[in-house]
Design a protein around this nucleic acid. Sequence first.
DNA 1: AATGAATGAGAATTCATTCAT
DNA 2: GATGAATGAATTCTCATTCAT
Lengths: 221, 221, 221, 221
Amino acid sequence: MPEIVRPTFLNLPEAKQARIIDAALEEFASKGYPQASLNVIVARSGIAKGSLYQYFTDKSGVFLYIFDFAISFVRRILVQVKESTLGEDFFTRLEKSLLAGVAFIKEHPRIYGIYLKILFDQQVPQRQELLRAVRQFSADYLQSLLRQGMARGELRPGLPQQTTTFLLDALLDRFLQAVSVPAFDVALGLDQATEEELGQRVRELVSVLRHGLADGDKPYE
Amino acid sequence: MPEIVRPTFLNLPEAKQARIIDAALEEFASKGYPQASLNVIVARSGIAKGSLYQYFTDKSGVFLYIFDFAISFVRRILVQVKESTLGEDFFTRLEKSLLAGVAFIKEHPRIYGIYLKILFDQQVPQRQELLRAVRQFSADYLQSLLRQGMARGELRPGLPQQTTTFLLDALLDRFLQAVSVPAFDVALGLDQATEEELGQRVRELVSVLRHGLADGDKPYE
Amino acid sequence: MPEIVRPTFLNLPEAKQARIIDAALEEFASKGYPQASLNVIVARSGIAKGSLYQYFTDKSGVFLYIFDFAISFVRRILVQVKESTLGEDFFTRLEKSLLAGVAFIKEHPRIYGIYLKILFDQQVPQRQELLRAVRQFSADYLQSLLRQGMARGELRPGLPQQTTTFLLDALLDRFLQAVSVPAFDVALGLDQATEEELGQRVRELVSVLRHGLADGDKPYE
Amino acid sequence: MPEIVRPTFLNLPEAKQARIIDAALEEFASKGYPQASLNVIVARSGIAKGSLYQYFTDKSGVFLYIFDFAISFVRRILVQVKESTLGEDFFTRLEKSLLAGVAFIKEHPRIYGIYLKILFDQQVPQRQELLRAVRQFSADYLQSLLRQGMARGELRPGLPQQTTTFLLDALLDRFLQAVSVPAFDVALGLDQATEEELGQRVRELVSVLRHGLADGDKPYE
DNA sequence: AATGAATGAGAATTCATTCAT
DNA sequence: GATGAATGAATTCTCATTCAT
């Protein structure tokens, strides 16, 4: 009963594994699951067609492995961001999170790309679960920020947690999309903003949000 | 110089046109552009393969026609909503807009589906333009609400228009996605909410937003 | 028992006939019989698809009519050339014939094109007969020149008529091909020769023919 | 960067290669490039449709490979003829070349057929180059005969080389065409001539060429 | 373990021809 | 007499997957 990735693949020299992962990532990220071609992946990895089927059960196996690889990657980064800003106040952390997201996308466009591709594609295997995992992931992160902020009295006391989380998640997601998909952003011109302008936009956004999330600048008690 | 849709198609009996549009809409909405099959469309319409090419230039012609059809549909609805709430205050209108969106999606899931599919698919013909048109459309709508609200003093004077529009747009878009794609909504359970609960959620969301957009309940002057 | 062209066509206003002939000539000349598309012809003539079938039996009917039209055209020209040079000697007439051919091709490239296309295409209807008609036509013309030349004592008495006709025909045909198909002419650069150079080449060719490759059996020194 | 023929094809057992080459040659020779059907070729070779695309990039790849195959074949033969007649005089060599051509055509009608098909078909891939290669080939051959003949004093000293080559090339080409396309030959009846009659015709042709149409400028009586 | 040849269903598109109006 | 919608077979090409070596 072979499972997605076969031990054969894991026994491969790391360099070879890397070549295959790289080729697959590139292909899935640029074309999406159903349009990605195993032929292309095989050609770019320099391995034989048959070999791919020694390593993975089938096309969906390759995809799921790559996706999992991508997810783990993101998770690691996010944990870092969370920890490195532990001491700061909620709004600063939110701003830093947005900017960290932008930085990540610019550095790893293919990993973000693979996420974008699966968003609305019915044919992606286990899309439901993959998607939920990612969203849950993001929601957990924001909720944790939120809780700590409330605990410290940086936020309005009556604030409904889930609804606020939803709002933050929507904002974060769309902001990143706007950065990487120009057609998405008809208002802010984020795709060609300089580092500085971007920071300015982020502060403005968070500020607008803030004056609904908290009435003043002083902590509640 | 045939353009996307040929006169032939427009000369067809309406019932036949409708059958073809319906089949195409279904196919594009469920599979997205590149995965949609003209074979399936003709089979479902009960027409011959060759006939489709009498009606449209090619696959992309079929798609663009269907997309245009869908857009016009949405535009009509949106104008209605805007006009039917002219007298009401900004936040009420925002709530009604969200609910109208939800109602539309439930009634025309395929039209919304076709929009979702093109969001991130590089291969969609003229995607850039189509996407921008839709986003511009939505932004214009919200901005117009916003302006009227500000003119009436229902909103905080210092509010940056573009940034706020961006925020509203993100919220609206994600809210609708959450309603139709369960995996998107890890927090609110919108997909199986009753009418009443949905109304409750909407009010909550807008309320959270409100206390950032306006400090108090009284009009500014 | 409908025959190739239907009376319907001949009853058409001349201008309409001309439009159809022109469109068909263009299409057959540029693509050859099997690749020519009735769709294109119909579109370019501005007539309805069904109408073409009121005028001609089928695709081959259209072609045969056009070809016949082309042939009659050529015949008329050739008779003119023959008559207008009646008084001159054989070699002068030969030279003039070559130059007349070049002039014709330049003025009516499509008529020559349609001839070139059918030369070796098995699928052309009645190709055998059409081709033979053209060749016979050319051979007759050259043979008549030859006979008159011999009768006037301008040529060597022992000359075998048929073989010589064959030689002349080969030369004429290839010369015209070389003028219109650059790849055909690796030696003389006929396709971009000036009027003058062309005349020079023609005289040279005829001269070589006239005097032969070797005058006697003994080696030159 | 796959080139026309893939290594896959060359790794095939020779018998299989031969079957495919044979089927393709037959199809291209009988229908010409644009009308040749890959369906037919695979059916006749007894291979799967997909397999052909493992061997060649596309239709034009198949064609170019076959054409190249044919050319090499001809080249080999021609070199043989040239070398085997080194000692003989120009006119004898010319006669032998004509007869060798005829023999070749009768033995390999499809190879000659494929050449005839590309002559005037605009859609043949790289037609310009292929055609020029063949013509250059033939011209080189004849020119080499010519030079050796002149060096040995077998030909008239003043003979213009290029023009004469052109004449010889035209003659050779048309002679072979007449042998294989009956409609081409309205004078000599070459297609059903016996070996002997053919020899006779060849000698006559060469003789006319040798002595020219007229010895002097003065009328004969 | 690795290879790479074989497969055939399915994709988009074109076309000559028919026939009811 | 004119129209133009309808047809379906044929075209080239792609792809995931299998399996003998």
